[in-house]
Amino acid sequence: MSIAIVTGTSSGIGLHTAVGLARAGFDVIATVRDVARADALREAADAAQVHLDIRALDVTDAAGAQALVEGAGAVDVLVNNAGRGAVGTLEQLTDDDLQAQLDTNYLSVARLTRLVLPGMRARRRGRIVTVTSVGGAVGQPFADAYCGAKFAVEGLMQSLAPVVAPFGIEVAIVEPAAVASSFVESVDRSDAGPYAEQLQAYLDRTAAAFAAAQLPEDAARTVVEAATTAEPRFRWQTSDAAVRFVGLSLADLDGSRVLGATSQWVRGTSGA
């Protein structure tokens, strides 16, 4: 049976991706930071009548990541899903804030990917799917650290893809827009100081977006498709909203379309 590792599976996209891959016939290693908080994952697996190998992993723990991969066997699919958000503009962000975003959203992804590559290369097959965000293509107000890390991981994966392709390894990124999940609850926030009015305008706009958010099980279907399709491609979006939003940047040669749109999110305040 083919082996898949999925990180960040305690809720949301990761949970439904793990279950979806198990339904597709994979032996799924589903990682969570704390196995004591994996009840929703266990319940979802039971409801779907599939088995998941649930293991503890803090993706920022290098030794833990190495032990996980070494004990996993021949990994055919890696889904880098674990992530953490942050709200704050650069003037209020500390070096520690920036590093925390890089550690979770970029460096941990690079590390796990590097660990599975030798085995995939030797077997001349494998697929690496990284869940990024529309924030990996479009920089957004007060998401400076988050978008910076997501931009970085998209650049990493786009650079890696053509190098490993001759060895039978496919690389893909999946870009969700707003998804109804506990991700928002885990977002780190900083004191906005002189930018408080602009931040409130941004948060109001964001709340409206999440009120109409995509269901995580719908987004997970795209991740599963990216991991299993016979016609792989590099970039995937999980919804029409994500397609439209990412399109702002991918066709924006001089940057004016993105800045024109995102400036509206914080306009009409004393700081604008």
Results as ranks from 00 to 15, higher is better:
residue 119 G to A: 10
residue 136 G to Q: 13
residue 133 S to E: 12
residue 97 D to C: 04
residue 144 D to M: 10
residue 93 L to Q: 01
residue 98 L to Y: 03
residue 92 Q to K: 13
residue 106 Y to C: 12
residue 103 D to V: 08
residue 61 D to W: 04
residue 131 V to A: 03
residue 86 A to S: 15
residue 115 L to W: 13
residue 59 V to T: 10
residue 58 D to Q: 10
residue 136 G to F: 09
residue 112 L to V: 08
residue 84 R to F: 08
residue 64 G to D: 07
residue 130 T to A: 10
residue 97 D to S: 02
residue 114 R to S: 15
residue 67 A to G: 13
residue 123 R to F: 09
residue 68 L to D: 08
residue 120 M to N: 10
residue 142 F to W: 06
residue 88 G to Y: 05
residue 81 N to A: 11
residue 113 T to I: 05
residue 121 R to W: 02
residue 71 G to L: 03
residue 64 G to Q: 03
residue 95 D to A: 13
residue 109 V to Y: 03
residue 83 G to N: 01
residue 102 L to S: 10
residue 117 L to V: 12
residue 74 A to K: 03
residue 76 D to L: 05
residue 74 A to P: 04
residue 134 V to W: 04
residue 72 A to R: 11
residue 69 V to D: 00
residue 63 A to Y: 12
residue 127 R to S: 10
residue 58 D to E: 13
residue 122 A to D: 15
residue 90 L to D: 10
residue 96 D to V: 14
residue 141 P to L: 11
residue 128 I to P: 08
residue 97 D to V: 02
residue 134 V to A: 01
residue 129 V to Q: 07
residue 111 R to G: 13
residue 130 T to P: 02
residue 90 L to Q: 08
residue 98 L to G: 03
residue 123 R to L: 06
residue 112 L to P: 06
residue 119 G to N: 01
residue 128 I to K: 04
residue 82 A to V: 10
residue 83 G to S: 07
residue 74 A to Q: 04
residue 86 A to G: 10
residue 105 N to G: 01
residue 125 R to P: 15
residue 94 T to I: 12
residue 119 G to M: 00
residue 105 N to K: 07
residue 70 E to G: 14
residue 61 D to H: 11
residue 122 A to M: 14
residue 77 V to G: 00
residue 83 G to A: 13
residue 120 M to Y: 01
residue 128 I to A: 08
residue 123 R to E: 10
residue 80 N to L: 05
residue 101 Q to G: 03
residue 72 A to F: 12
residue 136 G to I: 07
residue 93 L to P: 03
residue 81 N to K: 06
residue 65 A to P: 05
residue 130 T to I: 05
residue 139 G to D: 14
residue 111 R to L: 14
residue 134 V to N: 01
residue 100 A to P: 00
residue 79 V to W: 01
residue 115 L to N: 09
residue 136 G to W: 06
residue 67 A to Q: 14
residue 61 D to A: 10
residue 65 A to N: 08
residue 109 V to R: 01
residue 63 A to T: 15
residue 122 A to L: 14
residue 108 S to Q: 09
residue 60 T to Y: 04
residue 86 A to R: 01
residue 69 V to R: 02
residue 60 T to H: 08
residue 111 R to C: 12
residue 80 N to S: 11
residue 101 Q to L: 12
residue 107 L to F: 15
residue 69 V to C: 02
residue 85 G to I: 03
residue 145 A to G: 08
residue 70 E to A: 15
residue 123 R to D: 04
residue 140 Q to I: 11
residue 140 Q to M: 15
residue 84 R to P: 02
residue 75 V to Q: 02
residue 116 V to A: 11
residue 72 A to S: 15
residue 90 L to V: 12
residue 113 T to A: 04
